[in-house]
Design a protein around this nucleic acid. Structure first.
Lengths: 182, 182
DNA sequence: CTGGCATTTCAGAAACTTCTGAAATCTGGC
DNA sequence: GCCAGATTTCAGAAGTTTCTGAAATGCCAG
């Protein structure tokens, strides 16, 4: 790997982070490289820059495609495929969140719902079911919230996030105006 | 493993999910078991319920302790340690989020900040640095927001989440009243 | 201080994942 | 339809993680 030190440390860091998640080290490195690159890269560019085998790069790119995290493009007069990360970091974040929800959260919600619908035989099962309901309700609340704010424009969302906990004051004011108890 | 089917499928599901994250399968199973159990369990209970070796349970419990996800207790006249998951699912969620931030997000922010402070030599590095700044700002916004709403009581937070994107309407109203443009 | 139970550590075995080079397949231009 | 270059697949090697039983350690009660 012959990269500018600044890029190298970023790439290596994402390799490590990737392997801490389910994603493997080389996939992390490939994405980090595409993310900082100032132009789309082809598979051979990645082989050269990251010093891994051609086939490894191929598999890594397929994995990233399955996450919908890369854009494909072509250069005129060049048959090779060129890969890049989306320009907009918000878009990357949202895609990542969507995929993780789909792969990790939704199956869990399904398992929980199935369990909640079953008829408990023992007191032990009854308690387990109550616990699963608590977990279900929490996850459901969080995902519903996310699906909802996900529709907002990045600008609006950003404004909202910047406010942080201060939105609560607005709620209090509203409740006062409407005449409910805070 | 001799568990009621309802509990068994939950435990197995969390085993699989665990291994999809960095957490390993047995750690996931142990936590799922503790979560649904109607009383604190000791290591031997877990060995029996989950059918894994004593030493494996011991390591799994240590791992969970390092995540601050288990409570320890004792029974009168029994020297063994008993483990349980906190009652409150919000608390579990917050602990999980805190630990993941500490282990995964903070090191990344540090790497990004260091890279942003360096002096870029080439145009390539300059572009990479700009990209890293975008990523940094996004992560920073999200974590700052989280740290802020994290302080709210679960009840307030719940109210806020239930509103979802509707809080934006409040913002618009406020902006109108204050006399700014929406 | 000691005996006995509880827990942790550890080294190696088993299982799993990642990585590679070589072969197979695909694809567009002639 | 064939060639050349591009990409994917694959089987096995290398590397990593997980899991275990056995031994070591810790710790309380008497």
């Amino acid at each position: 790997m012959e990269l500018p030190p600044l890029i190298q440390s970023f790439v290596l860091h994402f390799g490590e982070m990737g392997s801490r998640w389910g994603i493997n080290r080389t996939v992390g490195q490939i994405y980090a490289m595409l993310f900082v690159a100032d132009r789309p890269l082809n598979a051979d560019d990645l082989v050269e820059k990251l010093g891994m085998s051609r086939s490894n790069v191929s598999m890594g790119l397929k994995e990233l495609e399955s996450w919908r995290l890369v854009r494909l493009s072509h250069l005129p007069g060049d048959r090779r495929e060129y890969f890049s990360a989306p320009e907009d970091v918000w878009q990357i974040f949202m895609t990542l969140a969507d995929e993780r929800l789909r792969r990790e959260v939704e199956p869990t919600l399904t398992t929980l719902r199935d369990a909640i619908l079953a008829t408990p035989i023992s007191a032990e099962e009854q308690h387990a079911q109550a616990r699963m309901r608590q977990m279900h309700d929490l996850i459901d609340l969080l995902t519903t919230w996310f699906a909802d704010v996900r529709k907002l424009s990045p600008a609006t969302l950003q404004q909202l996030l910047k406010m942080g906990g201060a939105v609560v004051r607005l709620l209090e004011i509203k409740d006062k105006v409407v005449g409910r108890k805070a």
